[in-house]
């Protein structure tokens, strides 16, 4: 189990240390800002029903689809007002966590 790893650099409080880096550190998931236009599967499951069509206008809070996981029917809601730009899955699809399901394009209304 002993693999010889090369020494790399690690910055702690402005000091650069020569050390081995762990796999967990190197493979850590990069953080990305939440993007309300991309609706992702928050859990692995099955697409039970898609409630919107491409091009359809939706309001923040509208139901977009039902994702069944762990025997629970989860209603995925739109995080913003906009148009359904793309539906990336179809009914019955099994999806793992973090998959892009729908894209919602924000529309900027001209105040009347």
């Amino acid at each position: 189990m002993k693999e010889e790893k090369e020494l790399e650099s690690l910055n702690i409080d402005s000091t650069i240390y020569k050390t081995r880096l762990s796999g967990k550190f190197k493979n850590r998931k990069p953080y990305s800002l939440p993007d309300p236009s991309r609706v992702l599967s928050f859990i692995s499951g099955t697409v039970l029903e898609i409630l919107v069509k491409e091009g359809q206008e939706v309001r923040k809070g509208d139901d977009l689809m039902i994702l069944e996981a762990m025997k629970m029917q989860n209603r995925l809601k739109s995080q913003q007002d906009g148009l359904v730009k793309k539906v990336c899955v179809k009914r019955g699809d099994k999806v793992i966590k973090g998959i892009l399901l729908l894209e919602i394009e924000q529309i900027h209304r001209i105040p009347s």
């Binding site: 690690l10 240390y17 050390t19 762990s22």
Partner: peptide
């Protein structure tokens, strides 16, 4: 252990 991750304290 300075040989690994400079011996930092972390979650694990």
């Amino acid at each position: 252990q300075p040989l690994e991750m400079a011996g930092v304290l972390d979650v694990d």
